[in-house]
Design a protein around this nucleic acid. Structure first.
Length: 216
DNA sequence: ACCCAGGGTCATA
DNA sequence: TATGACCATGGG
């Protein structure tokens, strides 16, 4: 399946954010996109940027009410405001953004997981895409697509089992490959299902039973 | 008028 | 451990 994705998408890589995004934008984006669409997360990110709030020190000290007003369009604003603040505070205590990003995965991941509002997926997204650490992101798309293909590592597999499943299948020394393959899955999830005639044109969504229709 | 979205936390049993 | 309510806005 990974080879199929590679063949289908090749160089057409999705990379979490428009290229050259600063790490702080990737970190904030990873929190804002929780249980929401990426387009709404991007709008919230833009309003943070316009307000000059895409900064660890600013986010860590800005009242949650103000942050919430800025990120309203991404849903659950008070929840996400608290989470953004918590993440910024953790990074400050870690010695600032540069020091934080230089941490090893083994040091960084527990810090992230100990932060309010950062669970396994958000932690891995930050470690992989903001810091370039070699950890695979398991999201709803990944589970849905592969489970439908009968490629679930084990029935009812948890996050860790899914993650090991992919990490074992990918080059052990190449964080870029981890980014690329997770990107393929996102591209595939955003693609249109082309199974015909039953499901012609349906988005690969929860309602669509076909995970395999990469190409006609 | 529904249902869903690239999650995570908290209270219950 | 496991399940469910909750967060709350925008789009199909």
């Amino acid at each position: 399946m990974l080879a199929v994705l590679e063949r289908a998408y090749g160089e057409d890589v999705w990379h979490w954010m428009p290229d050259r995004a600063r790490p702080i934008e990737i970190i904030a984006g990873a929190i804002l996109v929780q249980h929401t669409t990426w387009t709404n997360a991007e709008r919230a990110l833009a309003s943070l940027r316009d307000a000059g709030a895409l900064d660890i020190g600013v986010l860590a000290s800005m009242p949650e009410m103000e942050i919430a007003a800025l990120v309203r369009v991404s849903g659950t604003p008070s929840v996400k405001a608290r989470r953004l603040r918590a993440a910024a505070g953790m990074i400050e205590r870690a010695g600032g953004i540069d020091t934080f990003l230089a941490l090893s995965l083994e040091a960084m991941r527990p810090l992230l997981l100990a932060t309010h509002g950062i669970g396994p997926e958000t932690a891995d997204a930050i470690a992989l895409y903001a810091a370039g650490r070699r950890t695979f992101v398991i999201d709803a798309y990944t589970r849905r697509i592969f489970a439908r293909l009968g490629l679930e590592p084990a029935p009812g597999a948890g996050y860790t089992a899914w993650q090991r499943f992919f990490e074992d299948a990918l080059p052990a020394d190449d964080a870029g490959a981890f980014q690329r393959y997770h990107g393929y899955i996102v591209l595939h999830a955003k693609a249109r299902c082309r199974v015909r005639p039953v499901c012609d044109g349906c988005p690969l969504s929860r309602r669509c039973p076909h995970g395999q229709a990469i190409e006609a």
